[in-house]
């Protein structure tokens, strides 16, 4: 377990990288979930002077996923007693049709504008009522947060690369002697560096397990869930299959590249 102590800083560095990547993924996932949430809430009301089918709406803009007729029967029902059947039928025909349009995804402000213009151009459509407040404050904050996390991740990447580089020099120093002794007895490069690769792989696995553990604890604690529930969404903070695999691939990639650098830098000997 001496090696565990020796490689602590690499594990920490890998953990930091994995953790910040995962945070970035979680933020991205949160925004996607929130967009989905907004999309479900978001609809456009269209007033038309004649019947329009869903296919007709869809042909106007592919952003439109489906349309729903807003029933006017209730209104007419209430007038039943006060109007003659004949007048009522007339009214039924002349009364404009109301539709609610649902979108396939959450639109950007530009898309909304374009969509509204397209709808208004249609000869039968009299009014288009969208919600002006499409990009609400929470959403804007989330986008801002995403930017902040991105900058933060880059900063972390810079710091950890320095840490990894430092660790790399230490490794080079620690393993150079053994590797050169093995070379004196004719060990090929792969055999000389087998220990390094084994350690690199072990470190990557430990870092991945640590990240899984950390997110499991955060998940159990439920703090993130509570925060997200206040804006009406819930996400999977850490997918114990997909995210774990991605973390492992990143950790292995970083540590193997690091090991290769050492091995290539160590080919000359005494």
């Amino acid at each position: 377990m001496k090696s565990l102590k020796n490689h602590f800083s690499l594990i920490i560095a890998l953990f930091t990288v994995l953790f910040s990547v995962q945070i970035y993924v979680a933020v991205d996932r949160t925004i996607k979930a929130y967009e989905e949430h907004l999309k479900n809430d978001y609809s456009i009301i269209v007033v038309s002077n004649k019947m329009l089918s869903e296919a007709e709406f869809k042909a106007l803009d592919n952003l439109i996923e489906r349309s729903e007729t807003i029933a006017t029967d209730q209104v007419l029902e209430r007038l039943k007693g006060e109007m003659s059947k004949k007048n009522l039928d007339l009214l039924k025909v002349t009364l404009p049709k109301f539709y609610r349009l649902y979108l396939s995804r959450f639109p950007t402000p530009q898309e909304i504008e374009k969509l509204q213009k397209r709808l208004q151009k249609h000869s039968a459509i009299e009014r288009v009522e969208g919600y002006a407040q499409t990009h609400d404050t929470v959403y804007k904050l989330m986008l801002l947060f995403k930017d902040v996390v991105q900058i933060f991740s880059i900063a972390i990447a810079a710091v950890t690369s320095m840490l990894i580089f430092k660790e790399m020099r230490l490794w080079q120093f620690q393993h150079a002697e053994r590797m050169s002794i093995m070379a004196l007895f004719g060990a090929p490069v792969w055999l000389r560096s087998a220990v390094l690769f084994r350690l690199a792989i072990v470190d990557a696995i430990i870092a991945t397990i640590a990240v899984c553990g950390a997110f499991f604890i955060i998940d159990q604690y439920g703090w993130m869930d509570k925060v997200l529930q206040t804006v009406g969404i819930s996400i999977e903070l850490f997918d114990f299959v997909d995210d774990a695999v991605r973390s492992l691939v990143i950790a292995l990639g970083v540590s193997i590249v690091l090991t290769l650098t050492i091995v290539i830098g160590n080919t000359e000997e005494e």
């Binding site: 002697e177 002794i181 070379a183 004196l184 007895f185 004719g186 090929p188």
Partner: peptide, 24 residues
């Protein structure tokens, strides 16, 4: 390098400073 490795597998060297692997 490969020829040298091959040759060295048939040579035994003793150094003044032993050159043992400390962690083994």
């Amino acid at each position: 390098t490969s020829k040298l490795n091959f040759l060295r597998r048939h040579i035994g060297i003793v150094f003044q400073d032993y050159k043992l692997i400390k962690e083994w």
